[in-house]
């Protein structure tokens, strides 16, 4: 274990096997954010090569931690993260042993983000792919405009979740707030608890064998033990796809 202190930490330039540098594949690197800056952390993560492993201590709710990662790295944040943690993740796995602020894993492309606590609003917003697991609750607008990301929430989610969702799967082991799936296109939503209300054009749909199977796989991927048959499925009624002829007289 080494501690990243220097602000000029850069990618390894030599193949020296004795020199443990941030981002090398020689083991675990610890970055203490009491001393290192977020910019240094992210730059070092961007510069890392190989299957590196990172531990971030004293995050203190700082924003934009571990964003834009394009390397196959494991990042563990020991504490609470601020806004936009693990945003734009393209590769690797980010684990937050605490809560995450607004915009967790925003625009995630692939890889895995796991929050052991709660996540604030707009978790996994606009996510294109990958898996976002939140063990606790997620706030309002979870999965807003999701475009292919899979989201598994152990607790409840807030209002307007999966708003204008286009693709992907949202799994909620607790309850969902008001206006779930408002103006949804094609994402699939599975909720185990109650739904306060469904949004425009979102309806309950039957759970067929293929849905039980995909839900089982998502729960397993998230390390959860819920029974897929306890969930209900929601999705698009597809009534908002096209212009409604009755409105033609409005012009």
């Amino acid at each position: 274990m080494v501690t990243l202190m220097a602000p000029d930490a850069t990618a390894p330039t030599s193949d020296s096997s004795t020199d443990v540098r941030p981002g090398s594949d020689a083991g675990d690197t610890t970055t203490d954010l009491d001393t290192a800056s977020v910019r240094d952390l992210n730059q070092a993560l961007h510069d890392s090569v190989g299957a590196a492993s990172w531990t971030v201590t004293k995050p203190g709710g700082k924003h934009s931690l571990a964003v834009g990662i394009t390397a196959d790295v494991d990042v563990t944040i020991e504490g609470h993260a601020g806004y936009y943690a693990a945003g734009m993740l393209q590769k690797g796995r980010v684990t937050i042993n605490g809560n995450a602020g607004v915009g967790l894993a925003e625009n995630i492309m692939s890889g895995t983000v796991h929050v052991r606590g709660d996540a604030s609003q707009s978790a996994a917003a606009t996510g294109h792919g990958g898996l976002v697991v939140i063990d606790g609750n997620a706030g309002a607008r979870c999965g807003i405009s999701m475009k292919g990301v899979d989201i598994v929430v152990g607790g409840n989610i807030g209002h307007m979740s999966a708003f204008m969702a286009q693709a992907g799967r949202l799994v909620v082991c607790g309850d969902a707030g008001d206006a779930l799936g408002d103006s949804i296109y094609e994402a699939r939503i599975y909720v185990r608890g109650s739904v306060a209300s469904l949004g425009a054009d979102c309806i309950e749909k039957p759970m067929r064998a293929e849905h039980l199977e995909e839900l089982g796989a998502l729960l397993a991927a998230a390390g959860r033990s819920e029974d897929p048959s306890d969930f209900r499925r929601y999705g698009s009624a597809r009534n908002l796809y096209h212009f409604h002829v009755d409105n033609s007289t409005a012009y």
């Binding site: 203190g60 709710g61 700082k62 924003h63 601020g82 602020g101």
Partner: peptide, 8 residues
């Protein structure tokens, strides 16, 4: 407004 104000 944000957790970072509570962190200390």
């Amino acid at each position: 407004s944000e957790y970072r104000a509570l962190a200390a």
